[in-house]
Simulated assay, not measured.
Amino acid sequence: MAHLIGLIRVITINDEELLNLHGKLIERAFPELRVISRSIEDQPKGIYDRESEEKAKPKILRLAREFEKQGVEAVVISCAADPAVGEARKELKIPVIGAGSAAASIALSLGERIGVLNLTEETPGIIKRILGKHLVAEAKPRGVENTLDLLTDQGKNAARKALEELLDNNVDVILLGCTGYSTIGFAKIAEEIARIPVVDPVIASGAVTLSVLRQRSCLIKT
């Protein structure tokens, strides 16, 4: 039986196909999960700095509460900064998974020297805290200021150049520090260029969610 999970997009999306894209990525990778996606309102550029993150938090919390009332088994917040994850965990009785902490945890299982490809100047705080000394390099695409910029050819080319900068630091794992990279399917491109493991934050969030739900199911049965 499939596990029903709710996924929160932290950018306002009116296009149904684009809204469901992250959920579809998770469902293809993990057929045991069925994903319902919703997006926050009035943030067409998503989260790209501290101010936009604070503005998004109450909206994310409201959607998380609604998902729990709807009966989902877990909530995924599809953003590498893990906005409102801590707050939601305090309120909800079901697991709340952040894409950033999920990606960082998986990256640590793959190597010692992690390079993070960010959207903006700094690596998200939650990723920094988890990686600790294993975060050895970080880079961002020049001219990219928000997730919409990644959808352009210029943004994708800039991401490739930033990836090459990371590889000059002798990293053994690349962590994509924005779920916008999942939207454009950049993990596959990055692996072809880098020839080392690349952690996609959306896929990572699905992997962690399924692992948590399997553990909960086993505990209930025993």
Score class of each variant (00 low, 15 high):
G185M: 08
V171C: 14
I5R: 01
I94V: 11
A162R: 08
F67E: 05
L167W: 07
N169I: 11
G111C: 09
V10G: 00
A84E: 09
G46P: 11
L219R: 06
C79I: 06
F30T: 04
S205I: 08
K55S: 05
G71M: 01
R28W: 01
I196R: 09
P141K: 08
E145P: 00
R129G: 00
E54A: 12
K45L: 03
F186W: 11
R50V: 12
I130D: 00
A64S: 03
E73M: 02
A99D: 09
D153Y: 13
F186M: 10
I220T: 14
R34F: 14
I60H: 03
I26G: 00
G98P: 12
I106C: 06
A99Q: 13
K156Q: 15
N146T: 10
G111L: 11
V173Y: 01
L166E: 12
I40R: 01
R113H: 12
L4I: 11
K45D: 12
A194H: 08
G115I: 08
L166N: 10
N20M: 09
F186D: 10
A29S: 11
A56R: 10
A74L: 01
I220L: 09
A81H: 03
G143F: 07
V96R: 13
G111E: 14
R214L: 09
K90R: 13
A103C: 15
L18I: 08
Q70Y: 13
I127K: 02
L63Y: 03
V76I: 15
S37G: 03
I126L: 05
K188D: 14
V136L: 05
A84P: 04
F67R: 10
A102L: 14
L176A: 12
K55I: 02
A162T: 09
L117V: 11
P31S: 03
T222S: 04
G100S: 13
I47W: 06
R65L: 07
K156Y: 11
V171M: 10
L131K: 02
Y181S: 08
A107N: 04
